[in-house]
Design a protein around this nucleic acid. Structure first.
Lengths: 173, 173
DNA sequence: GACAAAATCACCCGAACGGATGAGCCGCCC
DNA sequence: GGGCGGCTCATCCGTTCGGGTGATTTTGTC
């Protein structure tokens, strides 16, 4: 909605800039053509100018689209208090039961099953497939299957991306 | 030359493109100047070309095409007949670039160098070694070295653990 | 200038991961 | 009871990751 309008405004502004630049060029043509070698110069200027314009456009098209990273504060707060164990315990793998519970609506939105969420929770703790398998009393193959399904549902390619996405979506703490 | 190859590859390519374009322009000058109005045309071409170059550069500097993928809820939960979830807004959860700064005391506490922190920040976004290398304009080998050092300093074995530890330690957002 | 730390790059190799695919079992629902 | 979805396990194969080692260059400091 807004993004689209901004996009059109961007294109419009871009077109105006282009037109203005052509006018400027036409003016420069009669102003500098006496210097006979100035053409290269202003083409250079055009190149530099539009490179910066391109960079600006590139930034505009990527960064601000983010704006609505809706993170459910309650979901975060319910799942959060587990990080108080600071850098003391290196590889301690405690209880299998994660103290936090997911937001059911979020799980429904992504179509994530309960078992998959358990895998996701263990995954976010930095466990390997084998460790997750031990935690959930299944084989590593099963963990891999769950993870593959999770990757599809979260639309990611790697486990680290899955953790990041799940975290920013409020699926895990 | 080896060491600087990756660092200055972009600038080099840019310079070469600029030079090539100037040569092309010189050729076009004597080819099309009879048409008297062709100058505007090729300045336009220059503008468009370097706009794309700028966009490319801009994308290079920000995010590696994580594609902000909007998860289609209906496509995900194919067999979910309850279509009461019509909202598709909050699923746009891209992996935003961390513009945040680390806590210097924490970095000192772990002995993490600035460059290593940069790698860590990119790592927490779920990027692969190759993507991190592109972001930081180094080779994948360098990324691997930084990561190995990070693993030692964070006392972890895997990248997911490193992210978890760094997050709970407050090293990254 | 010497020195230390950081940063960079390279190679090898085993382990872990990810994709694709198939299959069997179970509970639920029409 | 047949279909469906979830859970489980398996195999194969290619890619990525991590560990180890060594090397050079840059940078900051004394």
């Amino acid at each position: 909605m807004k993004a689209k309008r901004n996009r059109y405004a961007l294109l419009l502004g871009y077109g105006l800039a282009l037109g203005g630049l052509l006018s400027l060029m036409a003016w420069l043509k009669y102003r500098f053509l006496v210097a006979d070698h100035a053409t290269e110069l202003y083409v250079l200027l055009v190149a530099l100018l539009f490179t910066t314009v391109g960079i600006w456009v590139g930034l505009r098209f990527t960064a601000p689209v983010v704006s609505t990273a809706v993170v459910d504060t309650e979901a975060v707060s319910t799942a959060a208090p587990e990080a108080n164990f600071q850098q003391k315990v290196p590889l301690e793998v405690p209880l299998a039961a994660p103290a936090c519970r997911p937001q059911l609506e979020l799980l429904d939105q992504y179509g994530i099953s309960p078992r998959e969420w358990e895998v996701l929770a263990q995954l976010s703790r930095g466990l390997s497939n084998e460790e997750i398998a031990e935690q959930l009393f299944v084989s590593t193959n099963t963990v891999k299957t769950h993870l593959s399904n999770l990757y599809v549902k979260l639309d990611v390619k790697r486990r680290t991306q899955a953790v990041e996405r799940a975290r920013s979506a409020g699926l895990i703490g």
